[in-house]
């Protein structure tokens, strides 16, 4: 279809901080939205030349393909510790760690909590989709009670596996963090809210305020066995009941 944009002005396009590479994520996966929001934030703040991303193990392991900033691939769960090393070694860099729920809230529990407790001047994006996407849909620490995963085929039984962990609330108990918030991406309003939160989390770091954590409730349509639109609805109607949206700390 031939399109004429001659008399028109571009109001939305690919952020300059994204490469041309296509995302490896499944159709409808929120990782893509989040990656775009981060790139857009880097654009708006004009910091692509001084930003270092720390990528996790999991579906976002390929993050280095997508950003035009420097990227370090961390070992599983250690992104917050790696980000600590980067930021301490060169405080002029803007450092963000991008971590899934297994990375941040299970295998990396110690590194996540202690980076927050030291008040490291970094930005952490914590993607909570309640499942292990890359390894085949196993239980996450955030999986809901009753949620069927490949390692909880009859649904998560709290008597065996405990309850979904509200990690951001734990971080919010600490004295050092500046900003801890939980956001979602299931509709345009939430996407705009999440965009503002992420910008704030980066701005806090630019202003030297300290540790910011943005938890983002995301979907995994593939492993949830839902259509992308159903997955969005599931976040809105079910997941947010267990993981309420909003700011937990804002000391900025």
């Amino acid at each position: 279809m031939p399109v004429s944009t001659e008399k028109m002005v571009k109001v939305f396009g690919r952020p300059g901080s994204l490469t041309e590479a296509r995302f490896t994520y499944c159709p409808g996966c929120h990782h893509g939205i989040l990656t775009r929001i981060i790139a857009q934030t880097i654009d708006e703040l004009g910091i692509v030349e001084r930003t270092v991303g720390v990528a996790p193990v999991g579906c976002a392991v390929f993050a280095y393909l997508w950003y035009r900033c420097d990227v370090i691939q961390a070992s599983h769960g250690r992104a917050s510790a790696v980000a600590t090393g980067v930021k301490r070694a060169n405080p002029n860099l803007i450092v963000f760690a991008y971590q899934g729920d297994g990375d941040f809230a299970s295998i990396g529990t110690a590194e996540s909590i202690h980076a927050a407790n030291r008040g490291e001047n970094i930005t952490v994006i914590f993607v909570n989709n309640q499942v292990y996407g890359m390894t085949g849909g196993e239980m996450a620490p955030t999986s809901l009670v009753g949620q069927k995963t490949t390692t909880t085929p009859d649904g998560r039984d709290p008597a065996l596996f405990g309850y979904p962990i509200r990690f951001s609330e734990m971080i919010a108990q600490l004295d050092a963090p500046v900003y801890v918030t939980r956001q979602a991406l299931y509709d345009t309003k939430r996407i705009m809210d999440a965009t503002k939160a992420i910008k704030k989390a980066f701005t806090n770091q630019l202003e030297g305020k300290g540790y910011s954590l943005v938890e983002v409730l995301a979907t995994c349509p593939t492993n949830w066995r839902m259509k992308p639109t159903e997955a969005n609805k599931h976040v809105a109607e079910v997941v947010t009941k267990v993981f309420p949206l909003g700011d937990l700390i804002d000391r900025g």
Partner: peptide
């Protein structure tokens, strides 16, 4: 583990 991961980060920065 955290200590060696911090080393990894600092070493990455050069």
């Amino acid at each position: 583990i955290a200590a060696i991961s911090m080393v990894y980060g600092a070493a990455s920065v050069g």
